[in-house]
């Protein structure tokens, strides 16, 4: 199975920048422009958030962007319609991220088929249990060449990490600390013991660190311990600013990677 996620990690095993945004925020029709701007600014991978009314794992920033997006009219069918021609414009790896209930109502298999047709490469469904995935959906994901990305945390036991590593193909989403998204209380994300413990396990999937990554310093710290890092809440705050979408995106991405662009 080869999709764009696996190609990306094969070509660029270090310093990857993945950005999450909530589809339908700030405006309903911003989805495609945000994707294209992110690619233009050198982002490596994009996670498109499907808004949910009750996002348990998310802090206030993603909750609020989700509320706005739902109010703007974002739904799974609307998102799929917006992404209809996306592969004519970009080959950047795309991952859909959201909670299980809306996907369940759309129909899991129908959802996977449609996502695959549109050229989506992977999914992150944080509340889909590993056991359900293995029992009911793994075969369908593989049939449609979709990676299912699992989260691990500092509390995830080694045996479970190994089990996750066996069942996923893409990358492992390493939650930096015990926290919902958007927490910047700790100035540092260096949970060295946990990161090193995972590194020493020699997993077959690369790891990408997320949660609490919000500036150049935290991005670089994360990259030091894994293949890359994911930024979500900080990006959403940046595109909520008054300036144009393209200005906000380029200013923010450059602030994360300004050494490269200098």
């Amino acid at each position: 199975m080869i999709n764009r996620i696996q190609q990306l990690f094969a070509q660029k095993p270090q310093g990857l920048l993945s950005v999450y945004f909530t589809a339908g925020f700030p405006n309903l029709e911003d989805t495609v422009p945000i994707i294209l701007e992110l690619e233009k600014n050198g982002v490596d991978l994009i996670e498109i958030g499907m808004p949910f009314s009750d996002p348990l794992a998310d802090g206030p920033t993603i909750q609020q962007s989700s509320e706005v997006a739902i109010r703007n009219g974002m739904t799974i069918p609307t998102l799929f319609a917006q992404l209809q021609d996306i592969r004519q414009h970009t080959q950047i790896p795309l991952v859909l991220m959201g909670y299980l209930n809306p996907v369940m109502q759309y129909g899991v298999e129908r959802f996977l088929q449609k996502a695959s047709e549109l050229g989506i490469d992977g999914l992150i469904l944080p509340d889909l249990p590993l056991s359900d995935y293995v029992r009911e959906y793994k075969e369908v994901f593989e049939r449609y060449k979709l990676s299912n990305i699992f989260l691990i945390t500092p509390q995830t036991p080694e045996q479970r990490i190994r089990e996750i590593d066996t069942h996923t193909n893409g990358f492992i989403y390493m939650v930096s600390s015990a926290s919902v998204t958007g927490s910047t209380t700790g100035q540092s994300v260096v949970n060295t013991t946990y990161f090193e413990r995972v590194k020493e396990m020699g997993l077959r999937n690369p790891g990408v660190i997320g949660f609490g990554i919000h500036n150049q310093e935290t991005f670089e710290q994360a990259c030091h311990h894994a293949s890359g890092a994911i930024i979500g809440s900080a990006f959403i705050k940046a595109i909520a600013k008054e300036e144009s979408l393209s200005e906000n995106i380029s200013t923010f991405i450059q602030s994360i990677r300004h050494k490269e662009t200098a």
């Binding site: 348990l56 209930n101 369940m104 759309y106 509340d127």
Partner: peptide, 20 residues
Amino acid sequence: KEGIIHGSRTLLMQTEDGQV
């Protein structure tokens, strides 16, 4: 109708799109 809320699969009042 059947859905997921607060970690449990149960009956749930929701929109057609699965928003609670």
